[in-house]
Design a protein around this nucleic acid. Structure first.
Lengths: 256, 256
DNA sequence: TCTTATTGTGTTAATATGACGCAATGTAAT
DNA sequence: ATTACATTGCGTCATATTAACACAATAAGA
């Protein structure tokens, strides 16, 4: 079977393509139906779900590797991506997970670079949920969105990685307009507020929120209102791309 | 000569002790005479100065490796240490630097793990200047403090790493009481202010600064005043360790 | 047409911030 | 000893920011 052959080749020869000891794990955040979500893979061989990840090619920058990996999982090219932490516990390892698979494939642990220790760089990706076409990798059967509130036990230290990514996102939301990357081009104020409330995990005053957001000058109000909605139709807004770029560097200068 | 033998051994056998492709670079910040300073090493063999660094042992956590490296350079055990960025440009490499040395030592580039590509984790260390005893490593002849305002051209991408560390420190100073780690146990308010002004690189109003610092409740005013000083003697202060720990996690909730 | 949930905008009181005044203090010069 | 002076500690005030809340406008559905 082609699939098994590819896997076995990866185990035995992968180190001729990729750097040893270094892996990448990505937390892909999306926002949909007032829920913050992350992409998770269901492995063909392991029980637990895991974060999308991969390895760094011998002559590739780590950021480039993360972009390459995410292009494969989401179909997206220009993703807002940041490394946020490196996980280096010497006990974090695929060893236990791989033992059965190795036996089945008749690969001796000592033969494979995958059986060695890995240090993993955590990357946080913020994407427009509506633009993503989740695609599983060769080892997985599904790639799906999971609400942050409803994350099961993950493989390895992936729960820890996800937690750290969330913490990073919360901190960042306080001084950078990262909402831009999580929302479609046009969005309503209630949607933007829901995003902030979900990420920060607390309620915000609707009117004060509106005032603060507008005071940054980063939002442009459109003439168009949302259609087919009960009650008063909210206006659409979009980000002023130029001011967004500036605020990314300088910060927004307010606290929520 | 024992020195050359050790170096050669490190080049040829180091990969039996350390992980390939992974290095650590530390930016050690200290504060002295109203200047923010960093530790730099003067190599025995290279022209340019460089940051203290090292490698990760086969079974060692990265944080532990950084602590081990800094213990060797500063003599200090419990250092406030944080990874802040990973530098992974595939062109960053010791290759050029090592070529002459390899020739001299009759080591073929292909024989040594040191000639391979390295991904480096940047660590930022905040230390009490007065507690540090700078010690050069085996490849260096000196280990000395340099004022941040007066950093020469460094080896590899170390200028970039230092810049990133400084940026990280500036951001952090705005929401965490990191001054604690850079000052001795007791210090005066003008000293604390000088630290903030140096790191943030701007003047602050003396009286407003005093008010804000005290409003955090994180400082304890001592009865003792500074002796042997011209003009009015300022009081000493110390950090309330309990509140400091809390503020590290929660943040300080003010902007300077 | 009326009800109702939701949105857009305004008001006000409390709080935080920035800019500055002034007396107290301790060293050094006279 | 007296005085000059730079610096510290504490206070004031005008202004900006924030939090809490009121109310009219809107559009779907009864």
């Amino acid at each position: 079977m082609e699939f098994e052959k590819q896997i076995k080749n990866h185990f035995l020869k992968g180190h001729e393509i990729f750097l040893r000891h270094i892996s990448i794990d990505c937390v892909v955040f999306g926002f949909h139906e007032n829920e913050l979500r992350a992409l998770l893979l269901k492995s063909r061989v392991f029980d637990k779900l895991s974060l999308p990840g991969g390895f760094v090619m011998l002559d590739e920058a780590m950021d480039a590797a993360a972009h390459r990996i995410l292009k494969e999982r989401t179909g997206l090219d220009k993703i807002f991506l940041q490394q946020f932490h490196v996980f280096s516990d010497p006990l974090r390892s695929h060893r236990k997970l791989l033992l059965d698979l190795f036996k089945e494939m008749k690969v001796a642990p000592g033969e494979s670079w995958m059986f060695e220790r890995f240090i993993s760089a955590g990357y946080s990706a913020l994407v427009d949920f509506t633009k993503v076409k989740p695609m599983p990798d060769i080892l997985s059967e599904t790639c799906q969105w999971f609400s942050i509130k409803d994350i099961p036990e993950l493989a390895l230290d992936h729960n820890l990685i996800l937690e750290k990514a969330l913490e990073h996102l919360r901190l960042q939301l306080n001084y950078q307009p990262v909402g831009y990357n999580l929302l479609p081009l046009k969005f309503t104020m209630p949607e933007l507020q829901a995003l902030y409330e979900t990420v920060l995990d607390r309620k915000l005053d609707r009117r004060n929120f509106h005032r603060k957001m507008m005071s940054t000058g980063i939002l442009i109000k459109l003439k168009e209102t949302k259609k087919g909605v009960a009650h008063k139709a909210p206006f659409y807004y979009k980000f002023d791309l130029h001011k967004y770029e500036k605020a990314l560097k300088v910060g927004m200068g307010f606290q929520l």
